[in-house]
Design a protein around this nucleic acid. Sequence first.
DNA 1: CGGTTCAACAACGA
DNA 2: CTCGTTGTTGAACC
Lengths: 271, 271
Amino acid sequence: MLEHMEMPELPEIHLFAKDMHQELVGKTFDAVEIVQPKSLNLPPEDFRGRLIGTSIQAVSYHGKWIQLELSKGWLLINLGMGGEILLITDENYPEKVRLAFRFTDGSSLAVNFWWFGYAHWADTLADHAMTAKLGPNAIDLSLEAFRSLLQGRRGAIKPFLLNQARIAGIGNVTVQDPLFRARIHPMRKISDLSDDEVEALYGEIQHTLREAIEHGGSKWERNLYGRHGSWGKDFFSVAYRLDEPCPVCGKTIEKIKTGSTSSYICAHCQL
Amino acid sequence: MLEHMEMPELPEIHLFAKDMHQELVGKTFDAVEIVQPKSLNLPPEDFRGRLIGTSIQAVSYHGKWIQLELSKGWLLINLGMGGEILLITDENYPEKVRLAFRFTDGSSLAVNFWWFGYAHWADTLADHAMTAKLGPNAIDLSLEAFRSLLQGRRGAIKPFLLNQARIAGIGNVTVQDPLFRARIHPMRKISDLSDDEVEALYGEIQHTLREAIEHGGSKWERNLYGRHGSWGKDFFSVAYRLDEPCPVCGKTIEKIKTGSTSSYICAHCQL
DNA sequence: CGGTTCAACAACGA
DNA sequence: CTCGTTGTTGAACC
């Protein structure tokens, strides 16, 4: 039932960045193993050449991208539809690896994508179109900023929230319960939302993201150390609860098509 | 039959820029008459204030925009769906005028749009989004540059050629015969084109643009001096020749919808 | 069906 | 395709 929820969203990326910052700052690239060159934005030799000898200064994130600031340039990683980043402290690499980075201290970082992801090198963040065009991280938004982003928008609320160019980091897992709890139908026109609804939605988004982070990310993901999070379906009110009763009114939760994504909703509570 | 061909494309703009450079360099703006303020990107007073007292240093073009480099800033003119720019040497203004510029030597330039056009002022070209985002002028492209622009494109060839952000200056009149002569269907996927087809298409585009320029632009347009060009349907192989025989195979030329534009093609020759 | 980009399209406005 | 904007949809891609 939850087999298609293995994609990292803001909480998991946030945790990767935090742990990677903790573990990797100060390390220097010694070697780069590239199993899947198509994931790169440079020829493998160039990519390797940019990294080797540089050191990691800081690790942050923007939306679903992890950003490693180097002594020269940036290494930008996107796990695509899902994947793992593992810190390897001994010589035991995991079986499946698309990319591996070895550091001069003997430790390594292994990256695997379930299907496809990116590892890009950029001189500056502004040079990298895919991250440069992202909106602000959802978790860093103030209510006022959220209101002003919604200002004058004509479309529906759910596609807006999922559009990474508007707000970065929200995905189909973290958008559904906030909408339910704010009692807003995913396809409601943004211009129809009352001030109170916007405030409720904002609060529920913040709550959901923080809750997921506090619980170490989702159960279906592994973190930098290979450990699973504890945030899962137990925390959901309607998401992925097809045919179960709405926790508020008891009516049956439905699955509907909302543009190109699916949504679980209570048609009675969400208007 | 040819009633909808009154929009200037690269050849006509090229000729305007050339003649305007010849005639206008050195002239100083003395007065600006603004009949249609909506065409401007500044309040009329500001627009006027930017121009008066400045002189024209050079006239060039980018796509369908004519660029007048001034002693300070740029005046950028786009004729939109069609229009005229006339050099007036006596005091007889044409009847219909949206904008008129008077110079200190007593001469004037009159601009008319059939429907909508622009006259913008910009401090630098980089400041002006509408021209800054244009692709390279079609006529200045090398074969290699043309190939690299097509690299990795997923859509159909005709919409690509008409997209001014990719290549500037090609319009629905100047695109049709090159496609026919290269034997390429307008809706062919770019990724399906062979190297030879790309080269043929490139050559035919260059040929068409240069031929139109050499003949003074299209018959339906007037130049800076009010004179019509001589490039017209006689030069076309299939464009606007509905139900006539294909000059190569004799089959009937068809008119088809290609996205939002129409195309005249030989369905037998163009694959 | 995932993330992201791109293309095609509609509608509107200037 | 005069051009911009906005948003929607579907496809292709890695």
